[in-house]
Amino acid sequence: MAAAAAAGAGPEMVRGQVFDVGPRYTNLSYIGEGAYGMVCSAYDNVNKVRVAIKKISPFEHQTYCQRTLREIKILLRFRHENIIGINDIIRAPTIEQMKDVYIVQDLMETDLYKLLKTQHLSNDHICYFLYQILRGLKYIHSANVLHRDLKPSNLLLNTTCDLKICDFGLARVADPDHDHTGFLTEYVATRWYRAPEIMLNSKGYTKSIDIWSVGCILAEMLSNRPIFPGKHYLDQLNHILGILGSPSQEDLNCIINLKARNYLLSLPHKNKVPWNRLFPNADSKALDLLDKMLTFNPHKRIEVEQALAHPYLEQYYDPSDEPIAEAPFKFDMELDDLPKEKLKELIFEETARFQPGYRS
C-alpha cells in the first residue's frame, strides 16, 4: 500500500510507478496490472468513496492506442447498470505532455475469474450472474457493438453480487458484411471463450460470437473449470467437437473457408456428449439454455433477447427493466489503419471533457 500523499506533496508512487492523480484522489492501494497499465484503488475526496484507477501508458504502440481509444469512446457513450462506466479521466493539459491516461471507475471487490478459483456457486448465484451478463449484453448488442472478449476476468463483482462487464478494448461495431482481413492475426481474445466460426472463417462476425462466450462462462460457473481449455488453435476446435459432436452437413455448409471445411470433413465422426453427463448436478433449465448458447452453427445460436426470456431466468426476466441503447454506435473511421500519432490526438480530444474549465 502506498503511503497517503500529504496535501501538495506531488504524485504518489505505487510499486515504483508514478500515479499522478492528486489532489482529488489519494490513499492509493495496488490492485493489479494488465498488459499496459496498473490498477489501484484510491480515495475520492470529492465523492467520499474509494474508486478504481487504471493507469494506461499506450502511446508507444499502435495496438494499445487503438484499444484505449475504443474503450474510452464506447464506455463514455454507454450507460447501463451492468456495464462499468467511466467516472473521470485524468491526463496532462497538453498533448505533448500526455504520456499516461488515468481512467477512474467504480471500485468492484472482485471478478468472476477470482471468485470461481475459490468458491463453488449455488444455482441461485449462477442464475443471477447469468441474468446480469445477458442484461448488459442486450444493451451492448442493441448499440450494434460486439464485445468480443467476454470471459470471467472481464466480469466485475461486488459483495452485493452486482455484476458489471468491463474491458471493451477489443470491441467492434457489428459488421457481418465487412471482410476484416487479418482478423485472426489481430484477434487476441482469450482462445477458450472463442466461437468456432472465428477459427473457421475470417469473413465478418456477428453478435452470436458473444453468446458463445457467455455459454462458455455459464459452463464454467457450473463446474469451476473452463469447458474448452484448448492449448492452441486446432486443439481448441477438437475440444469443442469432442463435446458438441461432429457438425451436420448443414452446419458445414455455413463454413465459407474450404480449407477449414475440408479439415472438419477429414475428422472421424464424434457423438455429442449429453450435458447432464458433463454437469450431473446442474439445473435442467440451465443445461437447456447452455445447449442453445453453445450451438456450433452461429445462425442457430440463441440471441440475447431470447436467452433473457428463457425459463431458467424467469424469476428475473423483465423486458421493461432491460434497457437498450438510445442509438446504434458508430465509429467515424476504422481505427485499425491509423498511425499511433493520430490515435493519440483522438484520445486527447475524447478525454477533453474531463479537463478543468472544459467548454463543449
Rank of each mutant, 00 (worst) to 15 (best):
Y64W: 13
C40W: 13
A2V: 10
T26R: 10
P229T: 14
N262C: 02
K259D: 08
K164T: 09
V273M: 12
A260R: 04
I95R: 02
G245K: 05
S29N: 12
L76I: 03
V188K: 09
N238E: 07
H125V: 04
W275P: 09
P298C: 02
C127A: 12
N253W: 09
P176Y: 05
I165N: 15
Q17L: 14
L170R: 07
G22S: 06
P311C: 02
I126R: 01
L241C: 06
F78Y: 15
D318H: 11
P11M: 10
L234M: 15
D283Q: 08
K138H: 00
D124L: 07
E345G: 00
L184S: 11
N47M: 09
G357N: 05
L308M: 13
G242V: 04
P298N: 05
Y193P: 06
L150Y: 06
K73A: 10
E303G: 00
V51K: 15
K99H: 03
M221A: 04
C166H: 07
P280Y: 12
K99L: 05
G136A: 05
H180C: 07
D179S: 05
L343P: 00
N281A: 01
D124R: 02
T206V: 11
D106T: 01
G32K: 00
Y139S: 11
R24K: 00
P58T: 15
L76M: 13
I74K: 09
L290H: 05
L137I: 01
D235M: 07
L76E: 06
A352Y: 03
G34D: 10
N262I: 15
E350C: 02
N276G: 08
L200E: 09
V214W: 05
L170I: 09
S122D: 02
K340Y: 09
Y113D: 08
W275S: 11
G204K: 04
Y193I: 12
L265V: 07
A92R: 06
I324K: 03
N158G: 06
R79H: 03
S208T: 14
H269S: 05
P328S: 12
I240L: 04
L313Q: 14
K164I: 15
L218K: 10
A143R: 02
D235F: 09
G204M: 11
K117W: 03
K99G: 09
T94M: 15
V214A: 00
K207W: 04
P319K: 09
P226V: 07
Y139N: 14
L134M: 13
V39N: 01
E186I: 03
S29K: 09
A52C: 07
S41T: 13
L130I: 06
S248D: 07
K285N: 15
E60W: 10
L28Q: 15
I211Q: 06
I133F: 15
A309P: 10
S142L: 11
F228V: 02
L265T: 09
K48D: 15
V18G: 15
E303Y: 05
M108C: 04
A352P: 00
E350T: 03
